[in-house]
Structures are given as C-alpha cells and as structure tokens.
Amino acid sequence: MTQPLIKVANLTRIFDVSKPWLNRIIEREQKQYLRAVDDVSFEINKGETLALVGESGSGKSTIAKMLVGLLSPSKGAVLFDDQPMRMDTSDEMQELRKRFQMIFQSPYASLNPRWKVMDIIAEPMTVLGIEEDQNQIAKRVDELLVLVGLSAADGAKFPHEFSGGQRQRIAIARALSANPEFIVCDEPTSALDVSVQAQILNLMRDLQDELGLTYLFISHDLSVVRHMANRIGVLYLGALVEVAESKALFKDPRHPYTRMLLDAVPDLEMAGREHKEIEGEIPNPINPPSGCTFHPRCPFANERCKNEVPKPVQTQTGFAACHGVEEGRI
C-alpha cells in the first residue's frame, strides 16, 4: 500500500451569506449560512489521480481552494504529507507550498496579460525562492515550454498571442516550474474545444507518467473524469456521496445520484436511446433538504432517508453514503 500524500479529514466550509446588518434588523431576519462543503474526508495516494465530480454548487472548487490553502476550512483539516495546511506565511508553509500547485479553469483569466510568457512561467521559481540565477531560470523556462509542447521562442510572447489550448499549456508549464509533487486541476479543460481538450488531457497524463505527479482533478464532465482518474469521488450539495475506483464506479454505480448522473450524460454510443426521466434540480444549498439531501430527487427514498443523514457504507472499492445501499435494497 502506498502512503497517502494528502489526507483530508472532516473538511467543512461554511460561508456567511447573510444580508447586511441593517437589513437584518429592519427585516427581522436571522443570519444565513451556506454549508459549501460538509464533512468531507478522503485521501490521495502518491502518483494517483483522484477526481471529484459534481454539478454546480456541489463544493468542488471550494474543496480545491482549501486543499492548496487559498481558503481556510471552517472545520476539519488538510494534511499534506502529515503536515497541516495553513494559510499563514510561516517558514514551514513556504516550504510546503513548493510541493503543490494549481491549474485553473480559464486560461484567459489565470495568465497576466501584461506579462511575457517567460515571466509568467518563472514566477513560481522566484516567489518560492527555488532558483535565483537568472540564466538557470531562463534555461528552465525553455525546458518547460518544450515539455508542454510549445517552443522555447514562445517565451518572449504575450498570452494574447496564444489560443486557448496553448494558454492552458502555459498554465501547466507554470504549475510545473516549481517541481511540485501534487497539482490541483480545477476544471482544466472545460473552457476548451474537444479536440484541444484531448490534447491537454493527453499532455497531463504524459506528464504524470514522466514526473510521477499526483493530481486532484476536478470536473463536471464524467467522461473526462473516466479518462483521467484512478479513483472518483462524487459530490452532491457539498457532501461526498460515493467514492469508488474509476472502473467500478462506471460499471456498478451504487449511490442513486451517481446512477442518475451517469444516465444523464449524453453519449456517442447511445444514439437514439431514451433517457430515464430525471426528476428535479439541485436544491438551494442555503436550505438543504433534511436527512439525505438527495431524497427529494431519489426514486428509492423512504421515510428514513427524509429524517436521517446517511453514513458512509463500505462498498467494494470505496464507500457510498446511502441508506438504501446500507439496507441492501438498492
């Protein structure tokens, strides 16, 4: 068994979404809280890709931000190689920060338009104090550009001279420049066209094999996730409802929400197939349903599901949080 690189324990994040103080007084309203992430625990082993899938509002990006210390958890902790992740700038944190990086969704927003590509890629090295020598930095930037499939001469250009796919390659080069072990990828291809998406996904897999990277891959697209991940976690309203190995999840999904998601994905192989009717939409996370939050949309829901929050039940390759699975009726 490989050692887990990341341990996430009972991670919870609550946002205060109250109206301003004066409005609350006049309208006699209570403070309102949104549980964006609710008691999420998982581990990521060295060299593996864990994917988190979920629809909008399921807490994917909030988890990603807490994992790299861009957001502090309300409860719970993130352990990176057994060291707790914090948001301060202590020496230990700076040392820890060299070991992980993040790739963002939109390569249009994540690259500074006024910086040259070589400066963008060099920034993590200088900020984290990894390399001081300018010649060494320039050499490393050239290497990185070639590694992600661009040419060394591209370093002198500005981001606007590149297409979306090329920009995402630059973002990947930047993430790699500090030699991280772990990269959080938050919807890295959802702003790209399919043929470009394929290039980026292949590149990310090649880099993983070459450099032994560990990925947390966040996406709303199940077919992309299937292609990238070893294990998959399914999020619904901030909670992990099912975790399983990739193959097992697609072959034998246990949680009713996972089944529904799989059934909803339009797929090439399924031309002319009839969809099962899907009920309802994601409820408002400020006022989530009682018990199992999925029960209003679940075809298997009963009295217990309405009242009692389900606990994770062991499955073959992971767990599912469902009363139906526990009772053996699903």
Binding site: S163, A198, L201
Partner: peptide, 24 residues
C-alpha cells in the same frame, strides 16, 4: 474522424484520446 476520437466517452476504455494536432 479526429473529432470523434478526441471525445472521451463513457463506454470505451482507450488509454489515450486521439488528438488532432494544432488548432483551427
């Protein structure tokens, strides 16, 4: 052909996606 190959699907289990070099 390239477009179809570059779409990740739920059914098949290929390791690499077909990629069309370059962009439009």
């Amino acid at each position: 052909v390239g477009l179809m190959g570059s779409i990740p699907t739920l059914a098949q289990e290929e390791d690499r996606l077909v990629q069309i070099p370059g962009s439009m």
